[in-house]
Computed example of a mutant assay.
Amino acid sequence: MIVLAVAYGGAFGFGLPRAAYRLSVEPGEPWRAHLPDGRPLAGWFGAEGGGGPRWAPAGVCALVCGALGAACGIRPEAAVFVGVAPLVVLLGIVDLAVHRLPDVLTLPLAAATAALLGVAALLPRAAGSWRGALCGGAALGAAYLLLFLINPAGMGLGDVKLALPLGVALGWYGWGVWAAGAFLGLLYGAVYGLALLLTSRATRRAGFAFGPFMAAGALTGVLLGGFGA
């Protein structure tokens, strides 16, 4: 399972630069259709993008998928978590580039994660609860929506939408895992923000991409839940 997960993550991740380059635009702008040198950019999947390291996404995806494969083992939810992980990595890349989490990825990801876990719940050896997954997605989405309403300058709607699939994944293994993943996402982001302030690399009003920290917290929670199960 681990070998298959690593191979899948590496292969998928190697094709992410093109999708990341296409999606890394400011709100309201069309997706990129040409490379910086003016050549047309055909398709969404491939190693050719707008520059930057091509192997980094493949390495990150391989590592994440391998860790999920090790934690979940030969259980049906493993295929779901490993399958959607590269899309979460893609969202993190785009968020780091332009501080944006496109709806074209977040909303379908939430629907796909919920639907696939629903199928997994019907199969033998499933170690989670589909009802818990749905409740977890709704709860984390509502929590981030509340944070957005309290402080719109510090939380984007993209973060609220990303919270839906992450909450679904965390809720699968129960409320303890959900709480751990939700808290760790906030903690990782807070530690990074504090580090920026202490090193004078940002001011208190400066924003940064929060999606990767949400995803890291959710990954930690799912790993804990998988190994615990």
Score class of each variant (00 low, 15 high):
Leu117Met: 11
Leu63Cys: 12
Met1Pro: 13
Trp55Met: 12
Leu96Pro: 00
Gly221His: 02
Phe208Val: 04
Ala209Leu: 06
Leu109Arg: 05
Ala19Thr: 13
Val6Ser: 00
Tyr8Met: 09
Gly66His: 04
Ala216Gln: 05
Arg75Val: 14
Ala202Gln: 03
Lys161Pro: 07
Arg39His: 05
Ala153Lys: 15
Ala206Glu: 15
Phe45Asp: 11
Gly211Met: 01
Ala120Ser: 15
Ala206Lys: 09
Phe45Glu: 09
Asp159Thr: 13
Trp172Leu: 08
Pro36Glu: 06
Glu48Ala: 12
Pro108Lys: 11
Ala138Gln: 05
Ala111Trp: 11
Ala216Val: 05
Gly137Arg: 08
Ala120Ile: 04
Ala169Val: 09
Val119Lys: 12
Gly137Asp: 11
Phe210Pro: 04
Arg39Asn: 08
Val88Ile: 15
Ala180Leu: 15
Ala11Phe: 15
Ile150Asn: 07
Gly43Asn: 08
Leu16Gly: 02
Val160His: 10
Met214Trp: 04
Trp130Pro: 11
Gly174Val: 07
Val89Arg: 01
Val3Tyr: 14
Val82Ala: 04
His34Trp: 05
Ala20Asp: 07
Leu145Gly: 10
Gly118Tyr: 07
Val104Cys: 13
Leu101Ile: 15
Leu16Met: 12
Ala133Gln: 04
Ala115Leu: 14
Leu157Thr: 06
Asn151Phe: 09
Leu140Glu: 04
Gly50Tyr: 10
Leu63Phe: 14
Gly137Cys: 03
Ala5Gly: 02
Ala229Gly: 13
Thr113Asp: 04
Leu157Gln: 12
Met155Glu: 08
Leu116Cys: 13
Glu26Ser: 15
Arg22Ala: 06
Asn151Tyr: 10
Gly221Asp: 01
Ala138Glu: 12
Trp175Arg: 10
Thr106Lys: 04
Leu162Ser: 00
Val222Gln: 06
Val3Asn: 07
Gly83Ile: 02
Val6Arg: 00
Asp95His: 08
Arg205Lys: 15
Ala139Asn: 13
Leu63Ile: 10
Thr113Trp: 01
Gly92Phe: 09
Leu35Phe: 15
Pro76Val: 07
Phe183Ser: 15
Arg204Glu: 08
Pro124Phe: 05
Val191Phe: 12
Leu23Ala: 14
Gly46Thr: 08
Arg100Pro: 03
Phe12Lys: 06
Phe227Thr: 03
Met214Glu: 14
Pro57Arg: 10
Pro152Met: 05
Thr220Gln: 14
Leu23Trp: 11
Ala179Lys: 12
Gly137Ser: 13
Leu149Asp: 09
Leu35Val: 05
Lys161Ser: 12
Leu147Asp: 07
Val177Asp: 08
Gly225His: 05
Ala79Ile: 05
Gly13Cys: 06
Ala143Val: 12
Ala120Phe: 08
Ala111Met: 12
Phe45Asn: 07
Glu48Gln: 14
Asp37Phe: 03
Leu149Ile: 01
Ala163Ile: 10
Ala78Phe: 02
Tyr21Leu: 01
Cys65Asn: 00
Ala78Ser: 14
Gly51Arg: 02
Ala180Gly: 03
Phe183Gly: 06
Ala97Val: 01
Leu16Glu: 03
Ala142Met: 12
Val177Leu: 01
Ala62Asn: 11
Pro27His: 02
Arg131Ile: 10
Val88Cys: 11
Val84Asn: 00
Leu146Pro: 01
Gly59Arg: 11
Ala111Val: 14
Cys135Ala: 15
Ile2Asp: 05
Val177Lys: 08
Ala179Gly: 14
Val168Leu: 09
Leu16Asp: 09
Gly228Phe: 12
Glu26Phe: 11
Leu184Val: 02
